[in-house]
Amino acid sequence: MSVSEISGRAGRADWLRDVLPKLVLSPSFALVLIFVYGFIVFTFYLSFTDSRILPSFGLVGWQNYTRLFSLRAWDIAVKNVLIFGSLYILICCVLGLALAILLDQKIRAEGFIRTIYLYPMALSFIVTGTAWKWFLDPGIGLEAVVRSWGWTSFEFDWIKSSDMAIYTIVIAAVWQTSGFVMAMFLAGLRGIDNEVMKAAQIDGASNWALYRRIVIPQLRPAFMSAFVVLAHMAIKSYDLIIALTGGGPGTATELPATFMYSYTFTRNQMGIGAASATIMLMAIAAIMVPYLWSELREKK
């Protein structure tokens, strides 16, 4: 065997060793390039075309966007996602933090209680929506039950009221996700160094002051993660609205996700639907990109 033969074989082995990992990764990467980024470009392009029932490629400039922003339905959807999103994030964070702090007091059966708080996360929003839809229905649900107990003037018909229905979405969504937020905060609490706290306690700080001054400020990363997860879920909310209110009464609980679906697939206004999807993507990118960027840089 000659020297050149050996080095030739080694060269081939090196080459294979170099290429094989990339080869293994490439199908996944190709799929994501086409089906995520290629499709984003495609939909973005459609938002500048006169597509109606089917994609069409006649460019119309910004027309879809100007139409979109003049539509009352889009106005309602945006207003709703702002109301829903801010209440959803706020209540989930407050409730999640409170439950985490309560559970962090050396509670007996903590694991069991945690399981109960967390299980809604395992359910489909369609299941959650179905359960709450009938529970909040004034004809058979809470209102009827309380009345049958003797409080005959009791009223709770938010789900049938245009002004209040959006809050029933908040109720159901908070029920589903707040336990998950609790778990994030609990993990944060368990990671806190207690030396500082011991010192503060010796200085005579009250429990309340300990939490306010020392514990909660240290939970910043948990707050960040919770905010990003919840904001992203709020913008994407679709199933829950479909199951709980169907966007109604009327259009009172339409969100951008339901707007996009109905304009694209039932009203045959694909150009406008694509424009609304683009706006949704922008909103999510504005939240996710900085977060992922900082996460990836930290880990390097």
Binding site: L25, S28, F29, V32, L33, F35, V36, Y37, G38, F39, I40, F42, T43, L46, P55, H232, I235, K236, P256, A257, M260, Y261, T264, F265, M270, G273, A274, S276, A277, T278, M280, L281, I284, A285, M288, V289, L292, W293, L296
Partner: peptide, 20 residues
């Protein structure tokens, strides 16, 4: 590459419904 894969998890899927 990882960042691109990761961001793909979080896009609103409304953005891919039509071409898909």
């Amino acid at each position: 590459v990882f960042g691109l894969l990761l961001f793909g998890c979080f896009i609103p899927f409304q953005m891919v419904l039509i071409p898909m």
